[in-house]
């Protein structure tokens, strides 16, 4: 493999990894605050692509306007899922909420089939993203550069929100102790909804960029990316936002490099994520950046 080919693959890996990272953040945030795996997250990602698709195709509005609108709408969808499927079960046993999450996932998938139809749709990609750029001997789609830049920018914004703002402080407090946060005057329900809003919006950004990169959307498109990004979150250490991004990159780059270096294993591309998950769970169950604060009594 020449250096150029290698760089080409790495660029693709980073780009795919960025998309995984954006979705993985949503899993990790919700887990952090509710100790719940939001199985509907991959489907929220799928819904975002349909919102954007209809905005562009049916209402033929300018793409940037549609994207912003679709992102906000997806955030609201996240809140609706939280309020209906999870909030009503807040005091129920963990297993009930888990089942409810799986139910919410199936509901969204089937709603999409009913409303949008099961046949794949071609996602319109504005020329701006499609143009091929030549850097040295590698030629890449502009989008391949845009995706990581957007991801990193959003990650920094998110880290600022979580670590430097009052709402972020409330989120961190709620993630450790709902009851005491309440005693401090924190509106725990609002904080949880806000977390879903942010996580779903990030999934929407990931979804739209995903659809620009792989311009075919269908109701079950969120299932495999959803599972993989959950794995990315676990690899990075679930509950840790930076970890989710690291996990996303490891998964994205690893997957692309596997196929590039060992083309005979192409069929096992999706299995790579699960093998990695098993290895991590055996050797470092808390993930790469898992919580390690010692709590003294």
């Amino acid at each position: 493999m020449t250096l150029d080919v290698f760089l080409q693959h790495i660029t693709n890996g980073i780009s795919l990894g960025s998309l995984y990272a954006l979705i993985a953040i949503g899993y990790t945030m919700v887990y952090g605050i509710l100790r719940l795996i939001n199985f509907a997250h991959g489907d929220i990602f799928m819904m975002a692509t349909y919102f954007a698709f209809y905005g562009v195709v049916i209402f033929s509005l300018p793409w940037y306007f549609v994207f912003v609108f679709a992102i906000i709408l997806t955030g609201i969808l996240g809140i609706i899922v939280e309020k209906t499927a999870y909030k009503t079960l807040r005091d129920a046993p963990k297993i009930s909420i888990l089942i409810s999450a799986i139910g919410a996932s199936y509901l969204l998938e089937n709603l999409a089939v009913v409303i949008f139809g099961g046949r794949p749709k071609a996602f319109p990609t504005p020329d701006l993203f499609n143009k091929v750029v030549q850097v040295g001997n590698i030629s890449v789609q502009r989008l391949t550069f845009i995706i990581p830049v957007v991801t990193v920018a959003l990650l920094f914004m998110l880290l600022y929100l979580i670590n430097k703002t009052k709402s972020g402080m409330a989120m961190r407090a709620v993630s450790k102790d709902h009851e005491t946060a309440r005693l401090m005057g924190v509106d725990v329900d609002k904080t949880i909804s806000f977390t879903f809003f942010i996580g779903s919006m990030l999934a929407a950004v990931g979804g739209i960029m995903w659809a620009l990169k792989f311009p075919q959307i269908q109701p079950l498109m969120g299932v495999i990316p959803g599972l993989k990004c959950f794995i990315a979150a676990v690899i990075g250490g679930i509950g840790n936002v930076t970890g989710a991004v690291v996990g996303g990159f490891i998964l994205g780059i690893g997957e692309i490099m596997l196929v590039a270096l060992l083309p005979s294993l192409t069929g096992y591309r999706d299995a790579f994520a699960f093998i990695l998950l098993i290895v991590i769970l055996i050797f470092k169950p808390t993930g790469i950046m898992g919580e390690k604060i010692s709590e003294k009594v």
Binding site: A170, R172, K176, A181, G185
Partner: peptide, 16 residues
């Protein structure tokens, strides 16, 4: 809150 600094814990007391 073990994951918050001492200062942040105090600020949380004045949250409202």
């Amino acid at each position: 809150f073990p994951n918050l600094s001492v200062l942040e814990n105090l600020k949380l007391g004045a949250f409202v």
